[in-house]
Measured scan of single mutants.
Amino acid sequence: TEYKLVVVGAGGVGKSALTIQLIQNHFVDEYDPTIEDSYRKQVVIDGETCLLDILDTAGQEEYSAMRDQYMRTGEGFLCVFAINNTKSFEDIHQYREQIKRVKDSDDVPMVLVGNKCDLAARTVESRQAQDLARSYGIPYIETSAKTRQGVEDAFYTLVREIRQH
């Protein structure tokens, strides 16, 4: 089974770092803004072998026109913010609204991801993020692309959301 996953969120929150940590098991430290990259990885989730087709997208506003296209083809979405960047957390709402509009559905598989949880300088409390996820009816997972904490959990949870859909 193949799953088309799309990673969305503001610029600099760590979308590529999360994806590369999942696929290649290493942490990319330097920031190089993405336009669009796709990665494929075969994994076993709950005993089922599946192929993850992951689209890593641009957070930069100037590429926002490309969003409709990949939102149409994606089956599930990782909505990523950084726990030390309140603005990126506030941006999640717009991504969710755009996904709902493009998919013409209120019920699209999504996982809210709070990345950079290895950093002490948190400005978005776990509780705020949990409340937001609960209001959307989606899971919330904290990750660190640096330490790998929660990385597999985030992507695998999204696959489970798609399966249950």
Rank of each mutant, 00 (worst) to 15 (best):
S105L: 08
E48K: 08
I23M: 11
Y3V: 11
V80W: 02
S105P: 06
L78H: 01
V102K: 02
M71Y: 07
T157G: 04
E30M: 06
S88G: 08
Y95E: 04
Q130I: 14
T86M: 15
F77H: 00
G14K: 00
D32V: 04
V13H: 09
V28T: 12
Q128A: 10
G114M: 07
E75Y: 13
A121C: 05
F27W: 12
Y3F: 07
K4D: 05
D131C: 09
V6H: 02
K103N: 06
E125C: 12
V43L: 09
F77E: 00
D29Y: 07
Q24D: 03
V151E: 01
N115I: 01
V8R: 02
D153F: 02
T86E: 11
L52T: 09
G150N: 06
L158D: 00
R96N: 13
T147Q: 10
E2C: 05
V6F: 07
S38H: 00
V111P: 00
T123V: 07
E142H: 05
R163A: 08
H26D: 15
Q94W: 15
A133V: 05
A129C: 07
L52F: 10
R163K: 12
A82Y: 00
T34E: 01
V151P: 11
E36L: 06
N85Q: 04
Y70T: 03
E48F: 13
E61M: 15
T73H: 13
Q94V: 11
K87W: 09
K116W: 15
Q130F: 14
Q128K: 08
D68Q: 07
L5E: 00
L5N: 03
F77S: 01
V7C: 04
E62K: 15
F77A: 00
D131I: 03
G12F: 11
G11N: 14
V43N: 14
Y95M: 15
D68P: 00
V7N: 04
Q94Y: 11
V7R: 03
D68H: 09
T123P: 14
Q98R: 15
V13E: 06
F81G: 05
A129M: 14
I141S: 05
E97R: 13
F155Y: 11
V28Q: 09
V43A: 15
K4Y: 05
G47M: 10
G12Y: 05
G11P: 14
R40E: 00
Q60P: 14
D104T: 12
E30G: 07
Q164H: 08
T147K: 07
E30A: 06
D46P: 03
D37A: 02
V28G: 06
S64F: 07
R122L: 07
V111H: 00
C79L: 15
L5G: 01
G12V: 10
Q98G: 07
I20Q: 05
I23D: 03
Y156A: 14
S126N: 07
T147W: 08
P139L: 08
S88W: 05
L132I: 12
V28E: 11
L112Q: 01
R101M: 04
Q42H: 11
N85W: 06
T49F: 07
G76E: 02
K87I: 07
D153Y: 07
I92R: 01
T34V: 01
E90S: 07
A58R: 11
R67S: 14
D91N: 12
V113N: 00
I162K: 10
T34N: 03
F89N: 05
H26K: 01
Y156R: 14
E30P: 07
G14Y: 00
V44S: 11
Q69F: 05
D104W: 07
N115D: 04
V28M: 13
L51Q: 13
S38N: 03
V102F: 10
I92C: 11
Q21V: 07
Q130H: 07
Q98I: 14
C117I: 07
G76F: 13
K15F: 04
T19Y: 03
Q98V: 09
Q94C: 14
E36T: 06
E30H: 10
Y140G: 01
A154L: 14
G11F: 11
G9Y: 00
L158G: 01
Y140V: 08
S38M: 02
N115F: 04
R148L: 13
P139Q: 08
G14I: 00
R134I: 07
V102A: 08
S16V: 01
Y63M: 10
E125L: 08
T1R: 12
G137R: 05
T1V: 06
R72H: 06
H26T: 12
R72T: 04
G47F: 05
I35M: 06
K87C: 04
V43Y: 12
I92W: 07
R40V: 13
F77L: 02
I99H: 01
Q128Y: 11
C79D: 00
Q128M: 13
E48N: 06
D32C: 04
G137P: 02
H93E: 14
R40T: 11
R122N: 09
T19G: 10
V102Q: 06
D37Q: 04
D107S: 11
A121L: 08
E142G: 04
R122E: 12
A58N: 13
K146E: 12
R122P: 12
Q42M: 08
R134W: 07
L22E: 13
H26S: 13
R67Y: 06
L55M: 11
L78D: 02
A154Y: 03
N115M: 13
R72K: 00
C79T: 04
T147C: 14
T157V: 08
K103F: 14
Q24E: 03
V159Q: 02
G150S: 11
S105T: 12
I141K: 06
Y95C: 11
S144T: 11
